[in-house]
Design a protein around this nucleic acid. Structure first.
Length: 817
RNA sequence: GCCCGAGUGGCGGAACUGGUAUACGCGCACGACUUAAAAUCGUGUCUCGCAAGGGAUGUGGGUUCGAUUCCCACCUCGGGCACCA
């Protein structure tokens, strides 16, 4: 009997599959598009976490193929990014070269695990043939006015003298050197994702995402509905707008705050005698705010000397500059009252008068509110238990009634506000897609003509960002200086590059037609493959990549370039794999696990199986090298049983008994369980059921029962998505000519799952006291009668009157006395 | 502070829609095979108790004939957000 030699088997079939193009997708038949988040090819190599999520989708893809679908399961590289650039800065090796090395290593490693990717569609975001279209899509944004330049604050590290992406700032400190970062004003490219905020929120209703993903996107978008008030500034030809989501207590408003970085502030205070002081104080507030980081600081403020005339009759309200007011939320100006904790604290600090109108039910607390010792801000308890303040009718009214009142009187209008901000889309970095814009003194900003795309990254000597915070590209004169496409005069290229989220915002579309040179993908192919049927990825991408790509997709939909409103029909999320002690695996701690080592020692099939078995797919799990042996043992059993079927030397027992019924039953249960568990990503229980099957078959064979070959082959088929190599080898040994991976997914028979006798548990007062077997169709009365006569139960009934008997069909009887 | 998620044997974890808590795996113990070891196979493995029986799913209550599952309060851990009016 041959031993299970994973090295030989795995190599053999990987080569064979590749030769036969077994997993190549064609545009024919009923389609299924399954997608994993394409990896960032880091120098650290493949992580065991990649294998967990990839195996899951590989299993789904393989099952779909066996179910007759034409499956697209593609792979590529999200290769722009900071680690590669930082490595280049340190070593001087060109990022192109580093990327090539890393993708080669990743490709090799992925192939060793036996994923059923269609390698012919491989994409690389750093390939000019790819980023030509990333740039092209950017130009479409620009043409529609959704890509624009604006002054914003960027994170600046004063030590490294570079601008940092938000992701590089951890707790307000530079990720690289730990220095406190500052905010610096800089012109940045922005993408107007806020224009799509409402649709991004609403259309979540159309997709099959986990609730926690939807919730988290909704929180991020942060839609809140409220009222917009318009008020004239006293003695000034100026009107200001204030937004409030909690406007119920509008009768309590006694002052107004404006954000220190609000664009109207300058106008508002011009001519006020301490104008300079106000503006200086405001500027300082902005600086302090960025430094404060996570510490909630005491609010500071300064009076502007101006008042609004309150539209809802609270008189003239003083306008203050307040550090806690945000310029980019709502209108940046707020009417304030005693019923908001921040307003309350601010007013107390600066002795601004307050007049509470809302009171809690508790008398003592209400008294404290009235005496301004306490801020009552719970509008939810909603109904205003207020003294009659306004127009004789606000007290006791609900939110809806107040909205109606304000609208009817024309005092305010409904408005929604969002937390989400426009997307800062430029980086002052080398390793990203150049933004295809030319700056001309005469014509202003001119988009690069589409025929000139791609704008290829030029060679530079140093990848170090410049002292001024500009991209290293700014130093390449021969690249920067160009002719203006419009007036042909000399002009300069934009030197900012795109963030690494750009290429990943549309890669799933490129996979549909990855070689196309005329468009980002052929429209017929897009139509055939859209939408992505199942997309698995990490929770950490919920509010960045996943949201960004939904945004891009909707934009392309508006341009009629894609046929669906949403890119991904279904989304699932995997949990992280942590080190054995429950902390993140990281190179610096030295607690990483190299998948290649596991593959060498136990084989890819064992690794795949182990990662599916280790715990619930959506939860974080700790790696445990000691437990891998269990999966390996299971595969060895599969191997032994499989080989024994084909052992020619083994003589058939002439008095062979009839086929083992117990194995048949477990087989059908296993087919059902595995089929359903894959759909629900409950791989761990699928594996455990397959383990039960193999024990059962070993037991049966050991006791001389017969098991038909076909039963075992069906088992191999359901195991094949998990362990593609060993099952292919055994399938082959059974004499099958075609691959197991294009065989037909087995069906289970409900009839085989039915039992004609069932075990019934007998409880007395909810405690298990015995059990009995009954026919499945036996009627309730006779089951109850039987239960009360059961020997093991009798002694518990002695001396008691049976009050009630509960029968749960096919499960238990509970005798209550 | 706000919003999610999770607490079950020595460990990873099962448990359908409220119906035998601890499936499956790891580990451990004992046994078989072996000169021996490895591998493999078998048996056992929540806890107290000689037993009959009792107690256990983070803690405390509640609903129910019956609760890991539903409700309320609290504790602990993990994740996300950051003055969002």
């Amino acid at each position: 009997m041959k031993n299970y030699d994973h090295k030989k088997i795995e190599k053999k079939w990987q080569t064979e599959w590749e030769k036969k193009n077994l997993y190549k997708a064609k545009e024919k038949g009923k389609k299924f598009y399954s997608l994993i988040e394409f990896p960032y090819p880091s120098g650290a190599g493949l992580h065991v976490g990649h294998i967990r999520s990839n195996t899951a989708m590989d299993i789904v893809s393989r099952k779909r193929r066996m179910e007759g679908y034409n499956v697209l399961f593609p792979i590529g590289w999200d290769a722009f990014g900071l680690p590669t650039e930082n490595y280049a800065i340190k070593t001087g090796v060109h990022p192109i070269k580093v990327t090539k090395q890393n993708t080669d290593a990743f490709r090799k490693q992925l192939k060793e695990i036996g994923f059923s990717f269609d390698w012919s569609r491989e994409v690389d975001t750093t390939d000019p043939k790819y980023y030509k279209w990333t740039q092209w899509i950017f130009l479409q944004f620009y043409k529609k006015g959704l890509a624009y330049k604006a002054k914003t604050y960027i994170n600046w590290c004063p030590k490294d003298k570079i601008g940092l992406a938000n992701e590089e700032v951890v707790d307000g400190k530079c990720e690289r050197c730990g220095t406190d970062t500052e905010k610096r004003e800089k012109e940045q490219w922005m993408l107007a994702i806020t224009k799509y905020a409402d649709r991004l929120d609403k259309d979540l209703d159309l997709v099959d995402y986990p609730d926690r993903v939807k919730l988290s996107q909704r929180n991020w978008i942060g839609k809140s509905e409220g009222m917009l008030f318009t008020a004239p500034v006293k003695d000034m030809d100026l009107e200001i707008e204030t937004f409030s989501a909690h406007f119920e207590a509008f009768c309590a408003d006694t002052f107004v705050v404006i954000a220190p970085d609000h664009p109207l502030l300058q106008t508002l205070v011009s001519g006020v005698k301490n104008e300079k002081e106000i503006l200086l104080t405001a500027k300082k507030m902005v600086q302090d705010r960025s430094k404060a980081g996570f510490e909630q600081k005491e609010p500071t403020g300064i009076f502007t000397g101006k008042y609004i005339v309150d539209p809802v009759g609270n008189g003239n309200l003083p306008i203050w500059v307040a550090s806690y007011a945000l310029a980019d939320y709502g209108t940046g100006i707020v009417k304030c009252s005693a019923h908001d904790v921040r307003d309350f604290a601010f007013a107390k600090k600066y002795n601004i008068p307050l007049k509470p109108v809302l009171f809690p039910e508790d008398k003592d607390l209400a008294k404290k509110v009235l005496n301004l010792e306490l801020c009552f801000s719970d509008m939810q308890k909603g109904i205003l238990k207020a003294p009659n303040i306004f127009a004789g009718r606000i007290a006791g009214e609900t939110r809806e009634e107040i909205i109606k009142y304000l609208e009817e009187k024309g005092l305010a209008e409904k408005r929604s506000s969002y937390k989400i901000r426009d997307w800062v889309f430029s980086r002052q970095r080398y390793w990203g897609e150049p933004i295809p814009i030319i700056h001309c003194e005469h014509c202003g900003m001119v988009p690069v003509p589409e025929k000139d795309l791609p704008i290829v990254l030029p060679k530079v000597k140093s990848y170090q960002p410049t002292d001024t915070g500009e991209s290293p590209l700014a130093n390449i004169k021969e690249w920067v200086n160009v002719k203006c496409p419009k007036c042909k005069m000399s002009a300069k290229r934009e030197t900012d590059t795109m963030p690494n989220w750009a290429g990943s915002s549309w890669y799933y579309l490129r996979y549909m037609d990855s070689k196309n040179t005329k468009s980002f993908a052929d429209s017929k192919k897009i139509k055939y493959w859209s939408p992505v049927d199942w997309y698995n990825g990490g929770m950490e991408h919920t509010t960045l990549h996943l949201l960004y790509s939904r945004f891009w997709h909707k934009f392309l939909y508006d341009l009629k370039l894609v046929p669906t409103i949403e890119p991904y029909k279904k989304r699932t999320s995997h949990g992280m794999i942590l080190a054995e002690d429950g902390v993140k695996m990281s190179k610096s701690i030295g607690n990483t696990v190299n998948p290649a080592d596991i593959v060498r020692l136990y084989g890819a099939d064992t690794l795949r199986l182990y990662e599916m078995f280790m715990g619930p797919f959506e939860d974080a799990v700790n790696w445990n090298t000691n437990s891998i042996i269990g999966s390996r043992r299971f595969l060895e059993k599969v191997w032994r049983v499989g080989v024994s079927f084909n052992d020619k030397k083994k003589k058939k027992d002439p008095s062979s008994p009839k086929n083992s019924l117990s194995v048949e039953k477990v087989l059908h249960k296993t087919i059902k369980k595995v089929s359903e568990d894959i759909e629900n990503m409950r791989f761990n229980t699928a594996v455990s059921n397959m383990m039960i099957f193999i024990s059962e078959i070993e037991k049966a064979l050991g006791s001389g029962e017969a098991v038909p070959k076909e039963s075992f082959k069906k088992f191999l088929q359901v195991l094949s998505p998990f362990a593609p190599h060993i099952t292919e080898e055994l399938w082959n040994i059974f004499g099958e000519k075609k691959s197991i991976h294009i065989s037909k997914w087995p069906k289970w028979s409900e009839k085989m799952l039915e039992e004609n006798e069932v075990k019934i548990v007998i409880q007395v007062n909810g405690k298990v006291r015995g059990e009995m077997y009954i026919g499945i169709e036996e009627d309730e009365e006779s089951v109850k009668a039987k239960a009360t006569k059961e020997n093991s139960v009798l002694k518990y009934l002695e001396g008691n009157v049976v009050k009630r008997i509960i029968y749960v069909k096919g499960r238990l009887v509970n005798i209550v006395c």
